[in-house]
Design a protein around this nucleic acid. Structure first.
Length: 450
DNA sequence: CGTTGTTTAGTTTTGG
DNA sequence: CCAAAACTAAACAACG
């Protein structure tokens, strides 16, 4: 019943490395990072950073042909289609938005698509989630949250930062009904993968921080994941109605990648899956797609959300359509900095794992057993033992696992944080991870545990 | 008052 | 067909 309510797939106790101690230093660090990012004055260089990232990414992809198909080029988009010079050119509403510079923004992903393995041919080149408000990103909320977390380069970020990252990187959400934020919050609260890190009393600002529960990152390595494809592309109803967009269902999304998918052997197997997945439209890395629960969307999903609910009931007014929105307080604006669109699953995982190993950003901390429940700031009995029925995260793990897979190599240029977060997932480890992944999905089969 | 966080409940989609 | 997962909606409390 609950969206993320699946019982904890992993019975083991949850070992949350870090106590919910948000040290002043950590906070300062976070702020600093934020300041130097999208919210900062240097954000004007968004395009440049994005390109830099893109380039780095492509290079990485090239270096790792074996896992090329794992590259996050899910954002089908033609290279260059989205001129970095105009980050949100396609989104009038986003004009002036301090796009999170550099790093894998949605657009960046789309841009690099052609540079990455498997899904580089005949894939849906039109979808640019960063600028196209009509297409709902194929990411689950959990994935979006994780992406934001990863992008922040910090193991923990605020809710507002998550909002910001999402709105900055996904045009759809800038125009979508604000209810998605409710879903984000719901996800954070419900998903076992996310841990709430209370804000220190002396720390100004509202709400706490959120981080990924290391135990889930760890479990990613165990291949404990299932797959589930995301629903079909959803046209932003709000935007659509607002702009009276003349959508041509299928035109944008109806693309196949059946042609020219000659990649690694593994890709072969994936290809089938891919076809299955992309047959409908969305085209991107099958693996990533699955990992992130992207997957094809067979049909335009005219989902119930709006069906059941009346817009404007109560959320309509609270959502900022633009990153500079009132959604964020000055402090939070800064926090968003690190979000720069930096999306490195490796780092994310690394961070999480490191955290578990007391390598969390907040400094060496002794691993602390804590229950997941955000409230649990201290140590609580391993929740994993008592699989909370309301907790879910299986897919998240899957997503993270897979997402991490393609990002086997750290982003060049991301050194700073990466290093600070430890090298737990060094190449060797990643290799293992990938090996596991491969072994788990022979022939494209993604359900080792199923 | 708005944001944040929790919780409950219903709907839709997907995979087995 | 069923269960699980993902999503949506909404009520409500706490907090700044």
């Amino acid at each position: 019943m609950l969206s993320l309510s699946c019982a904890d797939p992993w019975p083991e106790g949850s070992v949350v490395l870090e106590e919910e101690v948000v040290t002043a230093a950590a906070q300062a660090e976070e702020r600093d990072a934020c300041i130097s990012s999208s919210c900062g004055s240097d954000n004007l260089d968004d395009s440049l950073t994005s390109l830099q990232w893109l380039q780095d990414f492509s290079i990485l992809g090239a270096n790792v042909p074996q896992h090329a198909h794992q590259q996050p080029h899910l954002f089908g988009q033609q290279l260059g289609a989205d001129a970095p010079a105009s980050p949100l050119a396609g989104d009038p509403a986003s004009m002036g938005m301090p796009l999170t510079p550099g790093k894998p923004t949605a657009a960046a992903y789309s841009r690099m698509q052609p540079l990455t393995g498997v899904v580089t041919h005949g894939l849906c080149p039109d979808a640019d989630y960063r600028t196209d408000a009509r297409v709902k990103p194929p990411f689950s909320y959990a994935t979006l949250i994780c992406m934001a977390m990863q992008a922040s380069k910090k193991s923990k970020i605020t809710l507002s930062c998550i909002y910001k990252w999402i709105t900055d990187n996904f045009c759809y959400y800038r125009h979508a009904d604000p209810t998605w934020q409710n879903s984000i919050r719901h996800n954070l609260s419900l998903n076992k993968c996310f841990i709430k890190v209370p804000r220190q009393k002396d720390e100004p600002g509202k709400g706490g921080f959120w981080k990924i529960d290391p135990q889930y990152a760890e479990r990613l390595l165990s291949g404990s994941y299932k797959k589930r494809r995301m629903p079909p592309v959803q046209i932003n109803p709000a935007l659509q109605s607002r702009l009276h967009i003349n959508l041509q269902p299928g035109s944008r999304t109806a693309c196949t990648l059946r042609d020219g998918l000659d990649v690694s052997p593994q890709a072969q197997g994936l290809k089938e899956e891919l076809e299955e997945v992309t047959i409908a439209d969305q085209s991107w890395n099958p693996r990533l797609a699955e990992g992130t629960m992207l997957g094809a969307w067979p049909v335009v999903r005219g989902r119930g959300g709006q069906k059941r609910k009346q817009f404007g009931s109560r959320g309509a007014a609270k959502v900022p359509r633009c990153s500079s929105s009132p959604l964020l307080c000055s402090e939070e604006q800064k926090e968003v900095g690190p979000l720069k669109g930096d999306f490195d699953w490796d780092a994310l995982l690394d961070s999480a794992l490191s955290g578990e190993l007391s390598l969390d950003e907040e400094g060496p901390l002794s691993p602390i057993l804590t229950g997941r429940g955000g409230q649990v700031s201290g140590g609580e009995a391993p929740e994993g033992t008592t699989a909370s029925p309301r907790r879910n995260g299986s897919d998240f793990d899957e997503e993270t696992f897979l997402a991490t897979a393609f990002l086997e190599t750290p982003w060049p240029g991301e050194e700073e944080e990466e290093q600070s977060q430890g090298d737990f997932l060094c190449n060797s480890n990643l290799d293992q991870l990938f090996d596991l992944g491969d072994s788990l999905h022979p022939g494209g089969q993604m359900d080792p545990l199923l």
